[in-house]
Write a protein that binds this DNA or RNA. Structure first.
Length: 594
RNA sequence: GGUCUCGUAGCUCAGCUGGAUAGAGCAGCAGCCUUCUAAGCUGCGGGUCGCAGGUUCGAAUCCUGCCGGGAUCACCA
């Protein structure tokens, strides 16, 4: 805000002093580094060509001009080619008076016309959610909320991969070895139950391969022709033909998985505006493929399979339909993209999908373009990095997958132990304690994951993730609770701190905190543009850290000067509200006491 | 091999649309609770920003090459 003002003044200044138009990209205004005096700094080096004077002279001339043209610029100093401007306390107090009671400080009202559809989660229905899915879900949900706060009309959608060979594998294994058991019979979550049969399939498949190799087949042949795999393929074909028995089993098993997923989603605090199912969209995908054949942009091979030739775009040929007529991943993604476009006519179609699928989305866009869909350009693949463990990658085969539910349980236990050790409150009911442990454990987990730049591969160290000190969710939650405690005491003492704050000489820590608070609106915009919850997380941490310094440096309830006391309490409330607001964008709750 | 990515303190990460002496946390050491929540605060030590060139008044940031890690190039999703 003030940066823009200074920037505009600078353009005027150059015009008036040197009779020259300053391109706005040269009007550089940045925050002054803390070890120098001042609030904002103009770098004058780029202006020397225009001023034709040395850096010090130029900086002094400009400084003089700026100070005279704005009541808020109270002084300046020049160090080398850096012009450091001091902003008057009255500016910061004005900002503070205008904003500290605003509910939606930093947020922009949503404009209807800018539909932004964001797909995330996109689970397969053959196994439970793991740590990788957690990153996806947290990112997708948070990016959606951040963009809402930035004024976008956001629609959160999920695309459930409810059909395909992988589900058939679980179904087949259950038919063969399930003995009619159901998840409720043995008290296990439905998604875990179905996942176990997926594992079972794999075990049997491996056995059959081994047997085939022993009886003389080569490896590749054995992998292709293992009877249980052929059976699963047969089942997929039956499914696509609409075979009643297969479809019924499919529906029943999928429902078990959905019931399980719902529990995990609810616990994570994840929701959607609309859920798409691949089983509803793959036919549309197939019809798009037909359309492409008619238009002659796709071709059929001798065996009947359909392909798209992208060699003129530097890519390869890509299969869109198998020879037996069944569809692949790409087929249904064409369909869902079309459906989503028809449903929302969005300006942006964001897909939160791991970076291992960069190539897939490249192809998806290009095929859609070939089909004449110009809106393919709206597709944006938010490709996030993998989550690694200290011992390497998660591999289901090696049993190193971190299960989502187990992880949340473990975090809960740690939150409980830590809270009990600190033993701050003995007046919490069991319900209140349970609620607090949930808030803290999920806060720790979500913050740990979201504070890292989405694009980067991240290391998930279980020991560090449950740490509650330093740059962690609970530290920031603690800061909020601490502020709330002070404010409660102020209320008990019937202190009214809702005053107008003018003509007050700001202390360093008061000013730096107000300055930081004034950044929040820009932070939201920046985070939205970059689809990066990490920007919000890092800001919340800065804010909490700054507040704790303020808290230690300055008394509040014990301050006798009424204006000072009131201002500090008001700053505290503003900070608590901003921490809460920022954490809401990350899907993290903050406690009143902890 | 082609394409894409990443490489910053012992570890995990900020900073990257070029700006001043590169920042946090964890871990280590030393202080601060008869004062508003010590899940906190303060201080100390810790760096050739992978390496080498280039562009620039100025490079962790941009370009090229190399080294090292990862992803991908499936009739899996």
């Amino acid at each position: 805000m003030i940066e823009n003002t200074i920037s505009k003044l600078l353009v005027d200044c150059v015009k008036s002093l040197y009779d020259s138009e300053l391109p706005s990209n040269l009007a550089q205004v940045q925050k002054t580094r803390p070890d120098f005096e001042g609030d904002y700094t103009v770098v004058v080096f780029p202006l020397l060509r225009i001023s034709k004077k040395n850096p010090e002279q130029t900086a002094n001339e400009i400084g003089e001009f700026l100070q005279n043209s704005s009541e808020y610029i109270s002084g300046f100093n020049v160090v080398k080619g850096f012009l450091n401007l001091s902003i008057s306390d009255s500016y910061w107090l004005n900002f503070f008076n205008d904003n500290w009671l605003k509910d939606k400080f930093g947020k922009v009202d949503i404009k209807d016309e800018q539909a932004l559809v964001i797909e995330y989660s996109s689970p397969n229905t053959n196994k439970p959610l793991h740590l990788g899915h957690i990153r996806n879900n947290l990112l997708g949900w948070s990016v959606a909320e951040i963009n809402k706060a930035a004024g976008k009309n956001v629609k959160k959608v999920n695309l459930v991969n409810d059909r395909g060979i992988h589900i058939c594998k679980s179904m087949l294994a259950w038919q063969k070895y399930g003995e009619e058991r159901k998840p409720n019979d043995i008290g296990i979550k439905g998604d875990k139950f179905v996942g176990d049969y997926y594992v079972k399939f794999d075990q049997e498949y491996k056995k059959e391969i081994a047997n085939l190799i022993e009886s003389g087949s080569d490896k590749e042949d054995a992998e292709k022709n293992a009877p249980i795999l052929l059976e699963a393929k047969q089942m997929l074909k039956k499914w696509e033909e609409g075979d009643t028995e297969v479809r019924e089993l499919w529906q029943e098993m999928n429902q078990w998985v959905y019931d399980g997923f719902d529990i995990s989603y609810k616990r994570m605090g994840i929701d959607f505006d609309k859920v798409y199912y691949e089983s509803d969209t793959y036919l549309l995908g197939k019809s798009l493929v037909e359309e492409g054949l008619e238009k002659g942009v796709l071709f059929k091979k001798e065996d009947g399979s359909v392909w798209c030739d992208l060699s003129d775009e530097g890519l390869d040929q890509k299969l869109l339909l198998r020879a037996d007529g069944t569809s692949v991943y790409m087929t249904q993604d064409l369909g869902t993209a079309q459906l989503r476009y028809d449903d929302y006519n969005p300006t942006d179609l964001v897909y939160v999908v791991g970076n291992e699928q960069i190539y897939h989305f490249d192809v998806l866009k290009k095929v859609l373009k070939k089909l004449g869909r110009s809106w393919a350009d709206a597709i944006h693949h938010l490709s996030y990095g993998m989550v690694e463990l200290p011992h390497g990658k998660m591999k289901s085969r090696e049993g190193t997958v971190v299960d989502a539910d187990d992880l949340m349980d473990a975090m809960y236990d740690t939150a409980k132990t830590t809270s009990e050790e600190l033993a701050k409150f003995d007046d919490f009911t069991e319900e209140e304690s349970d609620k607090l442990y949930n808030i803290l454990s999920l806060g720790a987990l979500k913050y740990f994951i979201l504070k890292v730049d989405p694009k980067k591969t991240m290391m998930f160290n279980p020991e560090e993730s449950i740490d509650f000190t330093g740059n962690t969710g609970p530290f920031i939650q603690y800061t909020h609770a601490r502020i709330k405690s002070v404010l409660r005491k102020a209320k008990e003492a019937k202190i009214n701190y809702n005053l107008n704050f003018d003509n007050h000489q700001l202390e360093d820590k008061e000013k730096s905190l107000i300055k930081l608070l004034s950044d929040y609106p820009i932070i939201i915009q920046h985070a939205a543009e970059n689809y990066s919850p990490a920007v919000i997380a890092n800001y919340a941490y800065e804010l909490a850290k700054e507040y704790n310094q303020f808290y230690h440096a300055l008394p509040m309830l014990k301050e006798e000067n009424e204006t000072k006391r009131s201002l500090r309490l008001a700053i505290s409330e503003f900070t608590a509200n901003t921490i809460k607001s920022a954490f809401e964008l990350l899907g993290i709750d903050v406690p009143e006491r902890m």
